[in-house]
Nucleic acid binder design. Structure first.
Lengths: 197, 197
DNA sequence: TAGTTTGGGTACGGTACGTACCGTACTGTA
DNA sequence: TACAGTACGGTACGTACCGTACCCAAACTA
């Protein structure tokens, strides 16, 4: 009979800690996210945690990455407006509680550490911008948008505006009418405005 | 001979505390902003501080308001592009250190308190939007922009994009080329796109 | 001058970060 | 299978800060 090891090591323990950290983040947000609670939930102690992550922000960021690992999916409805709205709605759902508070906390804590900031930027809701370029690229291919509009700065305008809205408004969810406004009053006119006459 | 009072009271003490808080914020940012340090710098103790502000966020917000009290000035160069760029540059200077870290810290701490969030939104760099509407309104009056473009969501696109950039990038200053890009690749095409054909 | 308000000093309880130490369970190598 | 080295778990500690409590004295007020 093979004895079940009572003491986890290495990767197994690391995964357990990460899972515990993600659960803690999900349960109480970044404010209630403490090293002691994570260690306790993982069935270990702070030692094992600090051996892997040098501080709270680093662990929080790693756990956040874990949480949002399988999320992104790029819609393809065949119409630019619908695609963009759907991506905005997805991002809005994501940035609503409890992710919003987590991102804010991480942002505040990671600001002083450029390398963490870099990671956070990459992982932040639809932060990369490739997905947005993909959607816009499809619209260009369909002839729905002019080729001159295919610019990273342009493609990410909706998510940038949403993110701003969310930062400025606090933890409350951005109303859907705002998302519609972003698309209809800003994004689509912008695409039109970039048409070469 | 009138004895100078050695112990300040009421408004005098309140102003002294606020000034000390602003100095502390400016010196070390929100992370190093502690009630004890503020009290010490003001030449008093935490008692007097807590009698006036219930917690750290409230005092930090009040001090931040004090810091940015006399800042806003709306440019009027006679050309929309130059006006917008100047406002963006001013906001960028403002959001660069140490204000950036302060705003991030306040945002993270105030998120749970709607009434503080409200204050913060109003006071945040060019957050109100009236100034941006003013600039755009002048352009419309000059015939430089179509009347259909006079929309709050449209007018505040540049500052929203800048704020997003700054939140996403961390504490580093946004390069001037980004500001130019926001204006030339997004804002001006957007204005053009809102022209009624 | 007596009485009330308001500052200032000090200490405390509580919480959390991050560090140190130490005995012990596991691992893998001889 | 014995043994050394590594990693884990328990515990305690030092530090820092928040927010509160208590008390006395200074300043104002009647």
């Amino acid at each position: 009979m093979i004895e079940k090891p009572t003491r986890r090591r290495g990767a197994a323990l690391e995964q357990a800690i990460l899972a515990a950290a993600a659960t803690e983040l999900e349960a109480g947000g970044y404010a209630a996210f403490t090293m002691e609670r994570v260690a306790k939930r993982a069935g270990t102690n702070k030692n094992a945690v600090y051996r892997r992550w040098p501080n709270r922000v680093a662990l929080g960021l790693a756990a956040y990455r874990e949480m949002i690992a399988a999320e992104t999916c790029v819609p393809d409805t065949g119409e630019l407006r619908a695609d963009v709205l759907e991506m905005l709605r997805g991002a809005n759902r994501h940035l609503a509680s409890p992710y919003g508070e987590i991102v804010r906390g991480l942002l505040a804590d990671a600001a002083a550490r450029p390398e963490l900031m870099e990671q956070l930027r990459e992982r932040m809701a639809a932060g990369g911008g490739e997905d947005w370029l993909t959607v816009l690229g499809r619209a260009v291919a369909r002839g729905e948008a002019p080729p001159e509009s295919l610019h990273p700065r342009v493609a990410t305008v909706p998510i940038a505006l949403l993110r701003n809205e969310f930062v400025v408004r606090g933890s409350t969810t951005v109303p859907d009418s705002t998302l519609v406004e972003i698309v209809d009053e800003v994004f689509l006119p912008l695409i039109r405005g970039r048409t070469r006459p």
